[in-house]
Simulated assay, not measured.
Amino acid sequence: MTNSMGVLTLIDELFCFKTCAISFSYQTKKKEKQKQKVSKMCSSKCFFIVSNLVLMILSLIILVFSAIIQNFDSSYILFREYVCTPTGIFIIFGSCLLCISLFALFIVYVRSAFLLSIYTCILFVVSVVEVAIVLAFFVMKSHVINLITDSLFLAESKYTVDKTAAETWDTVQRDLICCGVKNYTEWFQYFSNTSVPDSCCDFYTVGCGQVAVSNGNFYQNSCASAIANWTYGHVVTTAIFFSFTLLLQILSLITSHLYRTTIDSLTL
């Protein structure tokens, strides 16, 4: 009887030991999983913060660039109407990105999965609108150049009677190193003989335009082609910048999804 009781006691102790071992193993695994979840959350959180900080810097660059364009040189006042709309779009876009990045930092502070979902939706909508605007800009590029060319023709006809038109043309020809909209001979109908504005002169002196053609001292390039080349160069730069911004927005969307997933897993 005593032996039977001893065996039963030993079995109970072994069972208890096994139960404790299983419980300890379970708790250890649970803690390991919790640590892994916390580690994943920290990683996704860091990537989320970094991507939005870079997005904030880009938004500030866009706003500064827009402010520079807004204070356009008064000598180019005839073209102000063609830069007002793009500048307004840049300001709105930059402001949206700045608000979104600030909102992202607030989300990190409160650690809310619900706010992350709102952030993702807003950033996705902004990204789609951005792509649509960029595509529209590329489609309308040639139309805008034609409008600017028409304005140049109009200003050319008023060169000798309108101070604003003269200042615009002188600035355009000096800055872009060109003469006339399509050809330097367009100036002949507004000046006596074969004269051109002094701003067409390669080597400038007062009154140089009167003998510039005969001396070969004038810019050979047309302003229409110079503006087209200038626009193309800046369009490429703008496209690269917006492509980088879009990729960063996509990265922010991915990191926000990962961050939200880790927050959800920790709350389960």
Rank of each mutant, 00 (worst) to 15 (best):
T85N: 11
F218R: 02
D12Y: 04
N183E: 15
V161W: 04
L8Y: 14
I77P: 03
P86G: 04
F153E: 14
I122Y: 02
L253I: 06
S199W: 00
A228F: 11
I11H: 11
F137N: 08
V64Q: 07
Q249W: 00
T120N: 09
F90D: 01
Y109Q: 10
L248H: 01
I240A: 14
S243G: 10
C223I: 00
G180Y: 00
A136I: 04
N52K: 02
V181C: 03
L176E: 11
F47C: 11
T255F: 12
I254L: 12
N71I: 06
T164V: 14
V128N: 04
S117W: 09
I133G: 03
I68F: 04
T238C: 08
G180E: 02
V161N: 13
G209H: 02
V50S: 09
L55T: 07
H234W: 10
T2Y: 11
I11L: 09
K182V: 06
F90V: 00
M56T: 03
F218L: 08
T120D: 06
L115C: 07
A113P: 13
T85H: 10
Q189N: 08
S66D: 10
C121T: 12
V38I: 05
A212P: 06
V125S: 08
Y219S: 07
S199A: 08
R111C: 10
F138V: 07
F137S: 15
T28Q: 14
T160L: 09
K163G: 08
C179S: 05
I100C: 09
N3P: 04
L152F: 09
M5C: 13
E13Q: 14
N183V: 02
F17G: 13
V64P: 07
F218I: 01
W230T: 05
Y119K: 03
I177D: 11
S117D: 09
S243F: 12
D175I: 07
L251Q: 09
V50A: 02
L253S: 01
V131M: 13
L98W: 03
C200K: 00
K182W: 08
F106I: 12
I263C: 14
I49W: 02
D202V: 15
T149W: 01
V139K: 12
S66K: 00
F191K: 10
S214I: 12
N221G: 05
Q249M: 05
F72M: 08
T194K: 15
